[in-house]
């Protein structure tokens, strides 16, 4: 790994560790290997959002050309958000792409991702299905996001009706995550979700 990248990451790692956000539990950063190329980030779901109470893990890969190129970051924790792929965890955030600036750091990037959870950009979506729901049925979107936060990010128990529907599909032998995706996609209409799940298998 290029000297400058390792030097920067070491310093940024210390910066994050000393920051008030870490002290307040809003973000965390952990080192995964000794070459400073792979890290694991953690952000707390912001208050007054459907993500409140959840803890979201992020995979951080530092390219050799860092900080001239942005770090590669994706959600490892599944999340229902217009700007995050519900399938791969890929994040659509300008500063991770063409708006990257060399003075940005892991700390500022983690805070930006956290801010993205509070303020989605449905017009620049990473997940078209989620974005559509966000725009057309914001209430249902918030409930779905809360349900996912409970299921994957350790958030508080939420909507009993949703849990029951997932259980119905589980009883039919459907994989839990597949069931949740299908129900979320079809606005929690059990019939359409079932139809889609079983038609696909034929």
């Amino acid at each position: 790994m290029a000297n400058i990248a390792a030097k920067r990451i070491k310093r940024e790692f210390k910066e994050v560790m000393k920051s008030e956000e870490v002290a307040g539990g809003a973000i965390k950063l952990e080192l995964l290997d000794n070459s400073w190329t792979e890290l694991q980030g953690e952000i707390a779901g912001p208050p007054d959002t459907p993500y409140e109470g959840g803890t979201f893990l992020l995979e951080i890969k530092v390219p050799e050309t860092y900080p001239f190129n942005p770090p590669k970051i994706r959600f490892m924790t599944k999340i229902w958000h217009p700007n995050v792929s519900s399938v791969t965890g890929a994040i659509c955030l300008d500063i991770l792409k063409d708006q990257w600036a060399a003075a940005l750091t892991l700390r500022t990037v983690l805070l930006s991702i956290q801010a993205l959870l509070s303020a989605a950009e449905p017009n620049d979506p990473q997940d078209a299905v989620v974005a559509k729901q966000y725009k057309e049925n914001p209430t249902l979107f918030a409930l779905t996001a809360r349900h996912w936060t409970h299921a994957y990010a350790g958030g508080p128990a939420a909507i009993r009706d949703f849990d029951a529907k997932v259980q119905r599909l589980l009883d039919m032998g459907v994989d839990e995550h597949q069931a949740r995706v299908a129900l979320s996609t079809y606005d929690w209409e059990l019939e359409r979700a079932t139809e889609q799940l079983f038609n696909r298998e034929e």
């Binding site: 400058i4 030097k7 920067r8 060399a102």
Partner: peptide
């Protein structure tokens, strides 16, 4: 001092 640090390489 922080002012003497390069924001790119952090040296």
């Amino acid at each position: 001092d922080e002012e003497l640090i390069c924001p790119i390489c952090s040296g």
